[in-house]
Every structure is written in structure tokens, then in C-alpha cells.
Amino acid sequence: MSEHSSRTAETEPPAEGGHTDPGTESFIAHRNLLFTVAYEMLGSAADAEDVLQETWLQWVKVDHDTVQDRRAYLVRVTTRQALMRLRTLRRRKEAYVGPWLPEPLLTAPDVAEDIELAEGVSMAMLLVMETLTPTERAVFVLREVFGLDYEEIAAAVDKNTVTVRQIAHRARNHVAARRPRETVSQAQNRAALLAFQRAVETGDLQSLLDQLAPEVVFLSDGGGVVQAALEPIVGAKAVAALLTAGLGRLAGSASVRAAQVNGHPALIMRIREQVEGVLAVRTEDGLITGLYFVRNPEKLSRLDEQTTLRR
């Protein structure tokens, strides 16, 4: 559970628009970037906020006049804090009940327009990055998503430049072997989700089942708090059976609306106005290869307002 709620107001930067000094203004100006760096490294908005809290606490102790590049400095501090928290999260995830999925964020349309950023924060890519070591993930995010040079990354992860280049090469190869073969198509994802929405609203499953790839994988994250499959469901027949049973229970009782989540089309499902889950998909060659259903209530708190992500 995040410690953010227990922090006091005195440890937080003033809200944007308030009277601030230049050091505080620098932090506020780069806050969305810092949050995005932390979130891509952690896959958790709550933990990313805590990382920003620690970054702010370190920043207020610095003589800001001695910092030549405040953006680079703040990214470096944020990366180091995220690396420490990522190692803690890894231990936490080992005890997690069932599959772990990233915390979904309601995002603005401009995220989808930035192809590199949208791919970097997609459910599919965040899950791929879960297979990297903490340092590999930091180097990959800073290099491939944010375009930092190797010298900046080396300073952020406390490695020399030659080592960082080797880590970047290894991380790129690792991700390339596991990422979708083609850039995830927003149109294909939208079509797949429309079929899912139609199935929930009408009970007509066939148009949805026809879009399942033979090797499709269904992951549902309930965190041991709500009902969810405790193991990945693999294969079109197994996933179709699960969807048939689940959607049969939901038809007529659930409302579903389309939204932009993590820079891609997704569905937010509600029962009696209460958010019950978020569904995202991964499509390749026009077929659904991945279904990601986040049901853990602790991960559904940021779906009422948009989260600003920046590179």
C-alpha cells in the first residue's frame, strides 16, 4: 500500500499557480515528466507519486543556483529513487496473488498522438518491461522513450558510459524479442474493444470470439481482493470459454464505456456506477493476442480524471 496518503502538506510542493520560488517552479515545470519516468519504471501510479515525493524532499535541500541543468538533475534523482522502489516492488510482487498488471491511467488524446510515449506506457509494453532487471528497465526507459544520451543515463544509474551502452543493447534485444511484431494499431484495438462492448451489452459473443488469435493470453488482476483468474488463460478455446461464462453473467447488469487508458483504447466497466474493472487489449495482424483485465480496486482510483504524461 502507498505511503503517499500519510504525507503531510508541508512536504509537498505548492499547487501550480501559487506563489513559488524559482526552485519550486522548476520542480513544478518538470513534474509531469518526472511522474512519467517513475510510472514507466514502476507501472504503479501510487508508487510513482511516492517517488516524486522523495525527489521533492531531496530537491528542497539543494542549492538550486549550483544546478546547471535542473531537468537533468531532477530526472537523475527521480530515476535513483525509482530504482530503489523498483527493487522493493519486486519483492512485493513475489507475494502478489495472481497475475500482476500495471495500474491503469486515464490519459488525454495527446498521449496517443505521441507514438513512442503511447507504446512505452501501454499495458503490453509495461508487462514486457517487467521482465527486465531494474537497471535494464531504467536504461531502456531513459534511452528508448525519453531519448536521453548515454552520459545522462550513466549519471542517473551510477554506471559508466560503456556499461550503460552494453545494458541498453541487452535491454533492447530483450524487449525486441517480446514486444508486438508491429506497432499496436489503435484502430484494431478499438475494433476489438467494440466487439467486447457489444458482447457485454447484447450477449452476442461471436463477433468477439472470432477476433481471438489461436495463442491469445488472458490476464486478470484481482490482487486477491476480488475474483480473478489466478493464472494466465492461454489459447483461443480456453479464453473463449472464460469469456462466455463471464460475459453471460455480466450481460444486462454492467455498463461499459470506451476510454483512452495508457495511451490506447480501453473499456471501463461499471456495475451500479462503481468501477469494476478496466479492459485493455493487444492486437496483432487484426486478431486479439492479449486481454488485460485489471480488477484490483486499489488500482482503479485514477480513472475519474486524466493523468498528464509527458516526455
Rank of each mutant, 00 (worst) to 15 (best):
M129S: 10
D114V: 07
A192F: 07
T133G: 10
T161G: 02
K93S: 05
F140P: 00
A95K: 15
L148G: 06
E130P: 09
R165P: 03
V184T: 14
E103Q: 13
V128N: 11
W100I: 09
I153K: 09
Y150M: 15
P99H: 03
A138D: 03
K93W: 11
T163D: 12
A156V: 04
S122C: 04
E130D: 13
E130R: 14
L142C: 05
R181E: 15
M123K: 13
E113C: 02
D110P: 05
L106W: 09
L194C: 10
E113R: 14
A192R: 07
D110E: 14
R172A: 10
A108N: 10
L127W: 01
M123Q: 14
T133H: 06
L132S: 04
H169M: 07
V164F: 05
T131I: 03
Q197E: 14
W100S: 12
P134N: 04
P99E: 03
E136I: 08
L142P: 01
A118I: 01
I115Y: 08
D158K: 10
V162I: 11
Q188M: 08
H174G: 04
V141P: 01
D149Q: 09
Y96M: 00
A177N: 12
A177I: 11
E144I: 00
I115M: 11
I167H: 05
P99Y: 02
A112L: 12
A176E: 07
K93H: 11
T135G: 01
L101K: 02
V128M: 08
E136V: 08
A138W: 01
E116R: 15
A95T: 15
M125Q: 15
D110F: 08
Q166P: 05
A156P: 05
N173F: 10
F196L: 14
L101T: 04
T133Q: 10
T135C: 04
L132G: 05
A124I: 00
T183D: 04
S185L: 02
A192P: 02
E136H: 10
V111M: 06
L193W: 11
L132H: 03
H174V: 06
W100A: 10
L193G: 07
M125L: 14
Q197H: 13
Q197S: 15
F196W: 12
